[in-house]
Simulated assay, not measured.
Amino acid sequence: MADNSNVALPLSISAGIHIGVIIILAIGIDFTHKPEPVQQVSAPAVKAVMVDQQKVANQVEKLKQEKRDAERRERERQAELERKAQEAKQAREREQAQLKKLAEERKQQEIETQKANDAAKAAQLKQQQEKEKAQKAEAERKQKEQERKLAEDAAQKAAEKRKVEEAAAAKAEADRKQKEAEAKAKAEAEAKAKAEAKAKADAEAKAKAEAKAKADAEAKARAQQEQEMADALAAEQAALSQTMNKQMQTEVGKYTAMIKSTIQRNLVVDESMRGKTCTVAVRLANDGFVISSQAQGGDPNVCRAAKAAILKAGKLPVSPDPAVYNLMKEINLIVEPTFN
């Protein structure tokens, strides 16, 4: 019994010490310092303590391993958390980059949309301008066509009038020739009668004297008639010449007005030209092409504008009648700007 009591006490002490060591190791207390000396016990107790210390060492190593495993897992958990945090950061950065890209694309799309709208407006404006230009060109074409028709009508009327006057002149010439033939026939008849009267003169002196007196009277009358016919012919020629001159002057006036109208259509005016004029000498080819134009005097601005208008026209109206053209191939024009 005494031996059992002696063994039980050291075992209880050893067990308590082991339990304390395990608790201390569990909470991480360092055991590097030397343990305080323990009262010596008997040999059996020491042997039991050594056995238990091996268990304690094993237990301590197990706890250390568990601690290392726990630390390793904690490190892995921290690494996983950092990895996830990094991935989340990268995801946020990618999302922000995507949002930034979407914003830039939306901004670019807005810019392109604005450009497209601007281009559409510009195209619409250009289309409107081209439409207005076409309408203006059509109006000018119609105006020129109307002027051309008026000029053709006037030229046709003038040609018809000239034909009538030429027919009248031809009729007058035919009448004149007929009268001359009649006068000649009459003169021949009278000469024949005079010859017959002379043949009878020897036989009838009195008849001869009477025939002579009659012949003298008839000769005087014939001379007077011939003079009247010559005067009438001269009067007809003068009237015909006057008519033709008047007609040519009318043609010259008409084409002069048409030339001035053409220059006025192409004349660019401003208020500084109001009431001012310029005299321009123009040489024309037989088809109306402007060979040259030279300012003869007047306002410099009006002269420059007039020469520019003539150059822009290129061709000016001319009469197909050579006689009228000869009067107008070198013409001086007084250009005076008109204002609406």
Score class of each variant (00 low, 15 high):
M1L: 09
S5V: 09
V7G: 04
L11Y: 06
I22N: 14
I27N: 11
V41K: 04
V41Q: 10
A45D: 14
K47I: 08
M50N: 12
V51S: 12
N58L: 14
L63Q: 13
K67W: 13
D69T: 15
E76Q: 13
E87I: 00
A91M: 07
E93I: 03
Q96D: 07
A97E: 06
E110M: 08
T113R: 11
A122P: 00
A122R: 13
A123R: 07
K126R: 10
E132C: 00
Q135E: 14
E140K: 10
K144W: 05
K144Q: 12
R148W: 03
L150K: 12
E152M: 07
A154M: 09
A158Y: 05
E160V: 09
E166D: 14
A169Y: 07
A169T: 04
K179I: 08
K184F: 02
A185H: 06
K194W: 12
K194H: 07
K200N: 05
E204Y: 01
A205C: 01
K220F: 02
A223T: 09
E226Y: 01
E228C: 00
L233Y: 12
Q237C: 00
Q237L: 02
M248L: 12
T250M: 07
E251N: 15
I259Q: 12
S261T: 07
T262N: 01
T262H: 01
R265D: 06
D270L: 03
M273P: 06
R283Q: 09
S293N: 03
A295W: 00
Q296V: 04
G298Q: 02
P300G: 03
A306G: 01
K312E: 13
P322I: 04
V324W: 11
N326W: 10
K329E: 05
I334S: 13
N340H: 14
